[in-house]
């Protein structure tokens, strides 16, 4: 397993992140999934979301991302600048017809990452980080589930955003992959970001935990 290089997040985030939820509730169809969810995350805080299937972990993440409306409560993000959020869902949003290298280049451009000359976009370096070295020319469609997951992780770092929402980030990853997630998330938090991650397994990098649907 290649050693992840030390510094792969560009710089500490310009503004410290601050994510606050008060009394948030979620309704899907005619079912109330959860209510009264309140927490505040400041720079460096990582929240783990636990709970059984169907307890609304994904829905809460999608609410924070702005996809789902809040059935009740308020959500505030300190830095009002839009597009301050990364969301990594179950679907990896990868295009099978592109090669690994192209995917990285496209993702960098799509997310408004710094220009191509930036060392950030050194594809080889990225592939080494992700444990995909030597696969720049391989089609994404030929990657295994775990390798796809690793590639999807790249997006998190290509464009610096202070809030990360990770939906079961450990799915399909081997031990080295899980180390990778830990390293990325740790660097993100150290840089002053916040994150919320749903999981069925205990997460190492989170500083706090919330269990949904505990009463049900």
């Amino acid at each position: 397993m290649p050693k992840p290089q030390k510094k792969f997040l560009p710089v500490p985030y310009a503004k410290p992140a601050d994510l606050q939820l008060a009394g948030v509730a979620c309704t899907r169809g005619m079912r109330r999934l959860f209510e009264g969810v309140s927490f505040r995350l400041k720079a460096g805080d990582g929240l783990a979301l636990y709970g059984p299937n169907g307890s609304g972990k994904t829905s809460l993440l999608r609410q924070i991302a702005g996809f789902l409306p809040l059935a009740a409560g308020t959500l505030s993000i300190a830095d009002k600048a839009p597009y301050g959020v990364h969301f990594m869902g179950h679907a990896d949003a990868l295009k099978n017809a592109l090669s690994v290298g192209e995917t990285l280049a496209f993702e960098a451009a799509l997310w408004g990452a710094p220009k191509a000359k930036d060392p950030l976009l050194d594809t080889d370096r990225w592939l080494t980080h992700l444990g995909l070295e030597g696969r720049a020319w391989q089609a994404v469609g030929d990657l295994s589930a775990g390798q796809r997951r690793r590639l999807a992780l790249a997006k998190l770092c290509l464009a610096p955003r202070p809030i990360w929402l990770l939906d079961e980030p450990m799915t399909a990853l081997d031990e080295a992959g899980r180390h990778l997630v830990n390293a990325l998330a740790g660097a993100h938090l150290a840089a002053g970001g916040v994150l919320v991650a749903s999981s069925h397994v205990p997460l190492d990098f989170t500083t706090d935990a919330l269990t949904l649907g505990a009463a049900a």
Binding site: A65, F87, G89, A91, G112
Partner: peptide
């Protein structure tokens, strides 16, 4: 929509 890119399109700059 099927591969999750639509979610990502919502968050693009």
């Amino acid at each position: 929509y099927e591969d999750g890119s639509l979610d990502q399109m919502m968050l693009m700059p």
